[in-house]
């Protein structure tokens, strides 16, 4: 586990309305909560379902204050749509003295042929992210089950396992 060594972990998940950004952030926040962390999650939903840009912030650790990831402080930026990488890159923590910059995770990390269902790419990317976070695997699985209808459990647990088995820099 090579989680960042400061107190609060900051994750920004971005994409377009309808891609499962909010679902992914719900699962992440719930998994962190189930692992005993203090958690805050922020997002703006309004017109998002009409295909516009959307981003959601999840922060967890011993004690979280603001629910929004401060600019340039994201440890992880997970982007579900390639055209949304540039508009969101500014969230990432720049490389600082003695500390690596934040990591960008995009769908390129996943082999599309191995994905059980294209719609589950959001959960597959959570699997990739999960390798780097101090959250128990069972908490992830419970969060996936709690946040999705039963008929989607198998596909998403499989997608998560695929991501979790995928090495990422």
């Amino acid at each position: 586990m090579n989680s960042p060594n400061h107190e609060v972990v900051n994750v920004v998940i971005a994409g377009l309305g309808g891609q499962g950004v909010l679902k992914a952030s719900d699962i992440l926040a719930d998994a962190a909560f189930r692992s005993g962390h203090d958690v805050k999650k922020a997002e703006v939903h309004g017109m998002s379902q009409r295909g516009g840009s959307i981003a959601s912030d999840v922060r967890f650790g011993a004690r979280v204050l603001s629910p929004m990831v401060p600019e340039g402080e994201a440890d992880f930026l997970l982007v579900l749509s390639p055209d949304q990488v540039e508009p969101n890159r500014h969230h990432l923590r720049p490389t600082g003295p003695g500390r690596p910059g934040g990591s960008l995770i995009t769908p390129e990390a996943i082999d599309p042929a191995a994905l059980p269902n294209r719609r589950a790419v959001n959960v597959a990317l959570l699997g990739v992210l999960s390798r780097r976070l101090p959250i128990d695997e069972t908490a992830w699985q419970d969060a996936i089950r709690a946040n999705l209808p039963e008929k989607l459990h198998a596909v998403n647990l499989q997608a998560f396992a695929l991501g979790r088995a995928t090495p990422h820099p």
Binding site: L16, G51, G52, D83, Q84, H90
Partner: peptide, 11 residues
Amino acid sequence: APPPGKPPQLC
């Protein structure tokens, strides 16, 4: 100004 995102549209 934050980088512009993609505006919403009618479905």
